[in-house]
């Protein structure tokens, strides 16, 4: 089911962040690389969002690590509903300040680009969400939505590179989801930026 990048026991000095998902922690020798971003990619509907949310949920309930979920697709209410049907009481964790959800809405066509810009708004929102719960885990699901909202790819790519460096500096264990591309791991070549490692569903 999950094929992991060659993780040998030799690199056991690399600290791991347990996902709490039994099979996954076994085949990854203890979880995801700690304090690093991991790219999680797969086709539509294969369970990227579910895996990412379970990683946050178990982090908050079993490992005492609060988390932030940046949702580029579903609204907060939809996420709560979807996951309550699977037995995750997200609402309670949000109220207890163990999980923060920020829904990022991107209009597809309504934005006029009138000169140079950057994604500082995303950074500020992410930082304030991280600070609000003292997050150790972060999920960005899925950041590729940015490519459908904005046309200037060179700005986006430079900003993504800055984002992943920033996440490392923040020392959070991050999961970034991406849609599987035809000839590459992801549609927009996100794998270029995420150094921590990747999982293909």
């Amino acid at each position: 089911m999950t094929r992991s990048k060659q993780v040998s026991e030799k690199i056991s000095d690399l600290q791991k962040c347990p996902t709490g998902i039994q099979g996954l922690d076994e085949i990854t020798y203890g979880g995801l690389p700690k304090a690093r971003p991991t790219l999680l990619c797969g086709g539509a509907g294969c369970g990227k969002t579910l895996l990412a949310m379970e990683f946050l949920y178990r982090g908050a309930t079993e490992f005492g690590e609060p988390g932030v979920f940046m949702a580029f697709e579903e609204k907060e209410k939809e996420l709560i509903e979807n996951f309550s049907s699977l037995g995750f009481d997200l609402d309670a964790l949000i109220k207890q300040k163990k999980i923060a959800v920020d829904h990022v809405y991107i209009e597809r066509n309504d934005i006029e680009e009138t000169g140079e810009y950057d994604l500082e708004g995303l950074f500020v929102r992410l930082e304030s969400a991280i600070n609000s719960v003292g997050a150790k885990r972060v999920v960005l699901d899925t950041i590729e939505a940015l490519f459908s909202g904005f046309t200037n790819e060179s700005i986006l790519r430079a900003e993504l590179r800055r984002l992943f460096r920033w996440l490392k500096d923040k020392k959070v264990t991050a999961v970034i989801t991406g849609e599987k591309g035809e000839n590459a791991l992801t549609k927009h070549g996100l794998e270029e930026y995420v150094a921590g490692g990747y999982r293909l569903l």
Binding site: I106, I111, E112, E113, Y117, L119, L122
Partner: peptide, 19 residues
């Protein structure tokens, strides 16, 4: 999300400009 952003609230329609 993007900065700087200008939002034209009135008159309608609402429009967003970035840059």
């Amino acid at each position: 999300l993007v900065l700087p952003t200008l939002v034209k609230k009135l008159p309608p329609p609402l429009r967003k400009f970035v840059g």
